[in-house]
Computed example of a mutant assay.
Amino acid sequence: MAAQTTSPAPSAHPPTPGGHRRAATWWAVSAAGAAVAFVASGIGLAAVDGIYGRETTAFIDQAIAQDLVNLVIAAPATLLLAWLAWRGSMRAGLLWTGVLTFTAYNYAIYTMSIHVGPRFLAWVAVLGLTFWSLVGGLRALRPTAVAAELAAAPRRVVGWYLVVVAAAFTLLWLSDVVPAMIEGRIPKGALELALPSNPVHVLDLAIFLPAVIAIGRLVLLRRPTGLMLAPAALVFLVMTGLPILVTPFVTAARGGEPAWAVMGPVGVITAVGVGVLVALLRRR
């Protein structure tokens, strides 16, 4: 029987030593951002009135839910995935880009929506460290290597999930914004936060939802860049659902009237997103 030689899977080793060194810098920077976020979120939960006392009740509930997700999931996941990526896991590196996307998105909202207070510069630091880590980490990836590693992924399932979910949220946000524009009033999503406009609407409609649709289309067209970016888009959508699912429980604990109705549709979208993400990254 002839001797067989095996080569390591792409996920076992980084594509190039230089690429690994460049990425390692950003893994370390993101770990610093995660540490700051972990401490800042802990302080926010320990001193809710001192940090969020000037916001509306609805805003406070959402901020508490976000801090819980940051403290329990996002910050620890960033640290763990950065370490696994440094150890050579391509899949961990791809998941890491998604957690950073979620973190940068939410800290952009923190910095531009919540009154300046004792944690403001910490929020700015997390936003900066996370954003530049994401940019540097994506630049260190090689689309062809990622596409080869995920060659057996169910592209149609992944691509259509991204396109359909992003399109659905686009229509949902427009259903609040467009009538408000026509009637000359503040959109409901902004009114309950006492803001002139809802930052979620702005970031989603201008940047994130078009990006998710574009990534889904690239996946359907079998472009390597689409597969490289798809994990980040999926993780972003899944993690975005978590604070929404936690908020009704926070509202109930604080004596308010929870919006339990959101649990069903958001729960389904989030659960299906987890399944699609597993299918995308599963080894075959």
Rank of each mutant, 00 (worst) to 15 (best):
V177W: 14
G189R: 13
G256C: 11
A261V: 06
A279S: 15
T270W: 06
V200S: 02
L195T: 12
G216I: 06
A190C: 04
A190Y: 04
A261Y: 13
W260T: 03
V266W: 07
L280F: 07
L221T: 02
V158I: 11
I213M: 14
E183F: 02
L245V: 01
R254A: 12
V276S: 10
I186L: 10
A233G: 11
V165K: 03
L280W: 04
M239V: 14
T247L: 10
P231F: 13
G256E: 09
R217Q: 02
I182Y: 04
L195I: 13
R217K: 00
R185G: 12
M239G: 05
L234R: 06
E183D: 15
G216W: 05
T240Q: 13
I182G: 01
G184C: 06
V163T: 04
T170M: 14
A168K: 05
R254E: 12
M181Q: 14
L171R: 01
P224L: 12
G255T: 03
S175P: 08
A194M: 04
A167Q: 01
A261K: 05
L203N: 00
A252W: 15
P231W: 13
P258C: 06
V163R: 14
A230Y: 10
V178E: 04
F236A: 02
L191H: 08
A167E: 02
R222C: 02
A271G: 14
T270Q: 08
N198C: 14
N198D: 15
R254H: 12
V163A: 14
V158D: 10
R185E: 13
V262Y: 07
L209M: 12
L195W: 09
L227I: 04
I182R: 14
T251A: 11
A190L: 08
R185A: 13
A206W: 15
L191K: 08
G267F: 04
L203E: 00
R185I: 13
V276W: 11
V202F: 13
L209K: 08
P179V: 02
V200C: 00
G255K: 09
L281P: 04
A230E: 06
I269Y: 10
A233D: 09
T251W: 01
R222T: 01
L205C: 13
P224Y: 10
L242Q: 01
G241M: 12
M263D: 09
E183C: 01
V276E: 10
T270A: 13
P199H: 01
L280V: 04
L162D: 12
A279R: 15
V276L: 12
F236D: 00
V268D: 00
P179R: 05
E257L: 08
G184N: 05
I215M: 07
G264K: 07
V158T: 11
G184W: 08
A194V: 00
V158P: 00
